[in-house]
Design a protein around this nucleic acid. Structure first.
Length: 896
RNA sequence: GCCGGGAUGGCGGAAUUGGCAGACGCGCCAGACUUAGGAUCUGGUACCGCAAGGUGUAGGAGUUCGAGUCUCCUUCCCGGCACCA
């Protein structure tokens, strides 16, 4: 039997555990859980079918990428939460759609293939089987008949079909754009997949290189993606992240003439009211106008600056935003408002990809321009009256000065005045700019959906006809990146060559594949009608099940999956294929379950063994660590909890005297802090595991996994079991339950429990619901034996959380059908009203006593009862109270 | 730097939203049953104090009869964004 730091001996696994022990602990999750898991599948208990006579609830988890590592205890937290909710909703009479599937395209399988030569299809199949097994062992009430796999040709077919609809609408196009090329991964990445100039996956450096790529015109939906957030019941911080990512700003486009040239420079600004304060212009180094306007004298300087800016990695550029660099083009622009000549510079602080790639610089009122102007000794003119602009720029709003006809106007009015003027003069107009860029949609990978397009020798494109979908991946045995910018599919000459179905002439396929996000953009729709071979999903199914009523997943998808899926959904809405504007009505992010690990430090150079340092000898330095005294660079070393030596409760390394530092963070293999749910289930059962994960705190909050907490919920389940099963017998002898409806106290306790459980389940606050169920189990037999009706009601309340145990007891009570389809118990509200309540008596706001009263007792009666108490009398004194505050049923406060 | 969120016993966390702080669980203490206990059951457990009593929700001010909850300031922690004109 497994040992470890567990405090409770789990039920004997080995049948020959001593019989005395066995008889006293008849609750054996190991026996009953697999039995019910098989029952649910055999009986198709959770099969969902359209039934217009019943209200529906679509309860969805973000489907996982089936990695080779299997699940750790952190993954199921969200799955258990949705499962509890789904089971609760079924008991409330809802027709519940609760499906699960696999987001199975993706880089890890392909990297594994590069290393081992195993086909991603094989590893994916194996990983899915393992994930499914692990999820089923948790007793999750999915309708497994609706399982989808994004890599299945019958699914890929419709992903490609939707891509074709995007293409038809002009929302998918190919363009040469500076892309995020990651040499290490051998592919380009979307903006959303890059942070700090490094790939989100693996943290590899990313370069910006111009390449022809597929793009999806998500920017066409920017406004709707922004506006429709308002109607969603989503966590505010996720909405905010999406708003920030879309980054809408209102302002103006203004055209500046170029001295001695026909060219004009268009800029975007949110502060047209500061137009009179512009003292120079800046173009992004890549701006096409640069070569046109640069003077001969400045040509060398400009060329060398452009080259050095091009060499600079994204990361290096972002790293020093403090020091501004640039070069003068020698050309001058003309300020449309006053004809002033403004020198035109190029500088990498202006980004080609935002706005127009050019700015008017108003150093007095913009920090970046101020830094640049100071560095290159350009003039600074104050046009918004504010502090002291010789000391620092002022970017707030104020009153316009030095601005001709804007003088004296507050910023808001100055803006609209100048905008009217610009529009009247034809020099500019109101404009909106977004931070959001079009979505870079192709990857130079093998394991993804092929693009259903054919390219003619003249470069024109043709879609693969609907009837020929899906375009399947060819077999391949070498998955390595090509080392060039080509995709691995280029290697399949046979596959790349095709014949046009319209002209019969030779055409080439596209060697790129779609990013992993493609499949997850619409899987929630396929779940509505997963076996449809005629359409992606039927109208009927979509209308009945959509929208998703509750969507639970990790917050890391805030601007990736959730934005992409909303975009596709809106396109499908415009095509009349879906009936809701938004796919996910309510969203919740489950908090991580963290692991505990222990660390020490070792020099980066040299042997870690023997050369370790405890955390207090080391300090953080930027992104790394250094030795506090010597300044030598240090790296973290991790010790798994099971290897730590505890001396007087302090953690030490297993083989030397270094004191370790306890660190609580995300579970990961490298930290050695991963807890496997299989082990927990083996020792305590899935019901305990489920209960524990729901009990440790609010769903949204991160919480560290603690092995010590599980025995607590396990004991609770044992107690619950013993309410129904005679612990002294050696079989499963069901106790005689009383036929009556129970004592008043019992009925009251049940009513309170129904009330609390109902409210908490609705609010997804499972921790407090569990605590009430614990109170119920502890108290229910205090004034009499458990009546059958009350016992059955309790099992219904418990069943969403501990379904195996509930099913088992339900069956022992003689029921033939699953408790999953029982009815949620009725609440008798009258039982919630107590005859007498204890209220608090305060004197001048301080607690002095408690007194029992009828809940509707009058103030006079309450006061009289309170003043009769010696402690109250003493504090109040003899005089008349100056003031009395009485909240019936709660408290009485006397101010003497 | 900017924008969010947070800080409650030894620990995870409760508190009907301004009304008895610490529900429930872990841990700990005591007792019962036991040949035995890492099982089970019962009771206790915020802190100081023998007690009466006093003090307590990161720290400081304020509003109120009454503040964990509202307002202002400070500290720390966790997320997100970070040349977006």
């Amino acid at each position: 039997m497994a040992t470890g730091a567990l405090q409770v001996t789990p039920p004997a696994a080995d049948a020959h555990a001593d019989s005395h022990y066995h008889a006293r602990m008849p609750y054996e999750p190991r026996k009953i859980e697999p039995k019910w898991q098989q029952f649910w599948i055999r009986e198709r208990t959770f099969r969902a079918e359209i039934d217009p006579s019943r209200p529906k609830a679509y309860i969805l988890d973000m489907f996982p990428y089936p990695s080779g590592d299997g699940l750790h205890v952190g993954h199921p937290k969200g799955y258990v939460a949705t499962d509890v909710y789904a089971r609760y909703k079924r008991l409330r009479g809802f027709n519940v759609l609760h499906p699960m599937g696999w987001d199975a395209f993706g880089l890890p399988a392909e990297q594994h293939a590069v290393r081992t030569g195993q086909h991603p299809r094989e590893t994916t199949r194996r990983n899915i089987a393992r994930f499914r097994e692990q999820l089923q062992a948790l007793g999750l009430s999915y309708d497994w008949e609706r399982e989808v796999d994004t890599t299945d040709p019958s699914y890929v077919r419709w992903t490609q079909w939707i891509f074709e609809r995007l293409y038809d609408r002009g929302l998918a196009y190919q363009a040469e754009v500076p892309v995020n090329w990651c040499p290490e991964l051998g592919t380009v990445l979307a903006n959303e997949e890059v942070s700090d100039g490094k790939s989100e996956i693996g943290g590899h450096p990313v370069e910006r290189i111009p390449m022809v790529q597929w793009m999806l015109r998500i920017t066409a939906y920017a406004d709707r993606l922004l506006e429709d957030l308002d109607e969603l019941d989503w966590p505010e911080h996720i909405k905010k992240m999406q708003r920030d990512w879309i980054g809408r700003s209102e302002g103006a486009r203004v055209r500046f003439g170029v001295h001695g040239s026909d060219a004009s420079i268009e800029v975007f600004t949110t502060r047209p009211d500061t137009l009179f304060g512009a003292t120079y212009m800046v173009l992004a180094p890549e701006h096409p106008l640069v070569s046109e306007i640069v003077t001969e004298a400045q040509a060398d300087a400009v060329r060398s600056y452009r080259e050095s800016a091009g060499r600079k990695s994204e990361r290096a550029r972002i790293a020093d935003t403090e020091s501004k660099t640039g070069a003068f083009t020698g050309a001058y622009a003309i300020n449309p408002v006053n004809g002033a000549e403004l020198p035109i510079w190029i500088a990498d602080y202006v980004l080609i990809s935002y706005g127009t790639g050019a700015i008017m610089a108003v150093p007095a009122h913009d920090e970046r321009d101020y830094a640049f102007a100071t560095r290159f000794e350009l003039p600074i003119i104050e046009v918004v009256a504010a502090g002291d602009i010789t000391a620092a720029p002022f970017s707030g709003e104020g009153t316009s000065v030095n601005s001709d006809f804007l003088d004296g106007l507050p910023s808001a009015q100055a803006k609209s005045r100048i905008l009217d003027w610009l529009e009247a003069e034809g020099k500019g107009e109101r404009a909106v700019s977004y931070k959001l860029r079009d979505w870079l949609f192709s990857r130079q990978r093998y394991w993804g959906e092929p693009f259903p397009v054919l390219r003619h020798p003249d470069g024109s494109l043709e879609l693969v006809p609907e009837s020929d979908l899906p375009v399947c991946l060819p077999e391949l045995d070498d998955f390595k990146p090509t080392g060039t910018f080509e995709a691995p599919l280029e290697r399949c000459g046979d596959w790349m060559e095709a014949t046009s179905p319209t002209t019969g002439t030779p055409v080439r396929r596209d060697a790129n594949t779609m990013p992993q996000w493609a499949g997850s953009c619409w899987y929630y729709l396929r779940f509505c009608d997963p076996r449809n071979t005629e359409q992606a999903f039927s109208k009927e199914a979509e209308r009945y099940w959509m929208p998703v009523d509750l969507y639970v997943g990790g917050a890391e998808h805030a601007v990736l999956h959730l934005l992409y899926a909303r975009f596709w959904h809106k396109v499908l809405f415009d095509l009349g294929l879906v009936s809701t504007r938004e796919p996910f009505a309510k969203l919740l992010n489950q908090g991580m379950i963290q692991g505990k690990s222990y660390r020490y430090f070792a020099p980066v150079e040299g042997e870690p063994a023997g050369g370790g340092f405890s955390a207090r000898e080391v300090r953080a330095d930027g992104e790394g660590f250094v030795h506090a005294r010597s300044g030598a660079p240090m790296k973290e070393c991790w010790v798994a909890p099971s290897e730590v030596r505890f001396v007087n409760d302090r953690p030490f390394a297993p083989d030397c005297d270094i004191e370790l530092e306890e660190v609580i963070e995300k579970m990961s293999k490298s930290r050695g802090n991963v807890v496997n749910p299989d082990d927990v289930i083996r020792e305590f059962g899935a019901d305990s595991m489920r209960l524990y994960e729901m009990f440790i705190g609010p769903l949204q909050k991160a919480a560290p996994w603690s092995t010590d907490g599980i025995p607590g919920v396990y004991r609770f389940l044992q107690r619950a079991y013993r309410l129904f099963v005679d612990e002294a017998s050696d079989g499963d002898r069901v106790r005689e339950l009383f036929p009556e409806q129970g004592t008043l106290g019992q009925r009251r306790l049940l009513a309170q429990t129904i009330d609390k459980a109902t409210r908490d389940f609705e609010a997804l606050e499972f921790n407090t619901a569990i605590s009430q169920l614990m109170v119920f189990v502890r108290e229910i037999e205090k004034d009499g034996p458990l009546p059958r009706s009350i016992g059955e009601s309790f099992l219904c309340l418990l069943s969403p959380l501990a379904p195996h145990l509930a099913e088992e007891l339900w069956q022992l009570l003689g029921h033939r059908t699953s408790i999953a389809h029982a009815r949620w118990p009725e609440l008798d509200e009258s039982l919630l009203v107590e005859d007498e309540v204890e209220i608090a008596v305060q004197v001048k706001g301080k607690m002095r006593a408690r007194v029992s009263l009828a809940p509707d007792a009058s103030q006079a009666a309450a006061l009289a009862a309170a003043l009769a108490l010696p402690n109250v009398k003493r504090h109040v004194g003899d005089g008349e109270p100056r003031r009395v505050i009485y909240v019936p049923g709660r408290l009485l406060n006397i101010v003497p």
